[in-house]
Design a protein around this nucleic acid. Structure first.
Lengths: 245, 245
DNA sequence: CATAAACTAGAACATTGTTCGATGCGGCGC
DNA sequence: GCGCCGCATCGAACAATGTTCTAGTTTATG
């Protein structure tokens, strides 16, 4: 979505086919292995867990080796995002053959949401650099293709796709914020946690916070996915209206 | 928007009235000063520029002193966000007296967007902890109050407000990503930068990327604020429809 | 076999958030 | 005045991180 830096030609960063031979003294990585382990680290313990040292240990090599494949941590995360988006894209391609283009948009949006929701880091690195993230660009393209089947101007199509992506990424990143330790470590459940917050809200002055009191029960029992879907429907309804029903 | 950690009672964190007396050996801060300088640092040079050492230097004191007011950098950013939201809230309050509740929602959303757009860090820390961010909660309340004037169920109201905030914060954070050095240092303008990216897109295969080609001109000349407004209108149109026109 | 490119890695560096312990400052009871 | 105690400040040290330097080893190719 956001403007990408023009990629400086930089290092070759080509993969090396590590032969299936198991007996090698020195660790042999290959770009694929680096990204796979990086994503694994990210998925297991969140963004904070991805350090060059932890990654090197997992690869059984030295810290500096990673720099042969990647020029910086930023690039590592850009590439890791693209790596994950390959699966998202594959899923999305399957669901594109809808009669109704808006159904197609919804399907892609939901797929992307699911991916970002349990990978909070992905939101921040989605389509930052189209050169490093071809899969992100393709996802963008797929979503946009649906709008080509709607009666809209190019500008309206551009705005529609931007809106959907902004909403998906923003909402997912927001919902995916690292839960506090208490929940992560299983001390309390998500419900208890929500209830605790709800209680805090209920203790607010009712006259000053009529809305908060009005929705506090909904909040306490809400489901993230349903909340997302509801918001998405608003956008899609507005879009359908714009396209002339 | 996202669940907040239950605030551990922690340090008192009260302000101390630093007397106007200029001749003091030791630096006397006060919470207000800390937050003000932190925000200034953030605004001047982005999230990366806010370090405890830089902040201490600006305050003319030692690094460890800041920890008397704030338990961690996380809390510092939460409080800084709340500090900024005070102004946003004041702006929003002025624009709430609309006839049409949806006009009111739009006004608040635009105000919040403007604030986040040129403060990328704000998006990531918006309403993370309502106890530390009362202003964020009040903004949420104000937005929600508009929906009380619409014919909706509590759940629909909850979803509507969540959708608007998710879209605003997500889009603004996305658009507000740090521009690359070339642009920041004035080597090239934003237009040239966009044009460069557009050129890259135009070089893609036209059959595989029909949509990208279709909107590339729109992209090259697009205005962030207009793009945001267009997306917001989609949500609000969907909402109006849901409320029965 | 020699040469260059592909690839690995140890050690060192600067910078960051955070903690510890010591020290000053202000008012209050006596 | 004196001593005490809570508020407030700060220097120094720590561990962790991204990154660079430099040197080494492997692999393909002629």
């Amino acid at each position: 979505m956001a403007p990408p830096p023009a990629a400086p030609a930089s290092r070759p960063s080509r993969r090396s086919a590590s032969r299936p031979d198991g007996t090698r003294r020195r660790a042999s990585h290959s770009m694929e292995a680096v990204l796979t382990e990086a994503v694994a680290l990210l998925d297991e313990a969140g963004e904070g867990a991805l350090t060059f040292r932890a990654l090197a240990a997992r690869l059984g090599g030295g810290v500096a080796s990673i720099y042969w494949y990647v020029a910086s941590k930023e690039e590592l995360l850009d590439r890791a995002a693209n790596h994950v988006l390959a699966d998202v894209l594959a899923d999305a391609e399957l669901q594109v053959e809808r009669e109704d283009p808006i159904d197609g948009m919804r399907a892609i949006a939901v797929t992307l949401f699911d991916a970002v929701a349990d990978r909070p880091w992905l939101g921040a690195y989605f389509m930052r650099d189209t050169e490093l993230q071809p899969h992100g660009l393709q996802l963008y393209e797929r979503l946009g293709q649906q709008t080509l089947r709607l009666d809209l101007t190019p500008r309206q199509r551009f705005h529609a796709v931007s809106a959907v992506i902004g909403f998906v990424v923003g909402t997912a990143a927001d919902m995916g914020q690292e839960p506090p330790r208490e929940v992560l470590e299983g001390e309390i459940t998500r419900e208890e946690y929500l209830a605790r917050w709800a209680e805090e809200w209920r203790s607010l002055d009712a006259d000053s916070y009529p809305y908060v009191h009005h929705i506090v029960d909904e909040f306490a029992t809400h489901d993230d996915a349903e909340q997302f879907r509801a918001g998405l429907e608003l956008i899609l309804a507005g879009l359908r209206l714009q396209a002339g029903g």
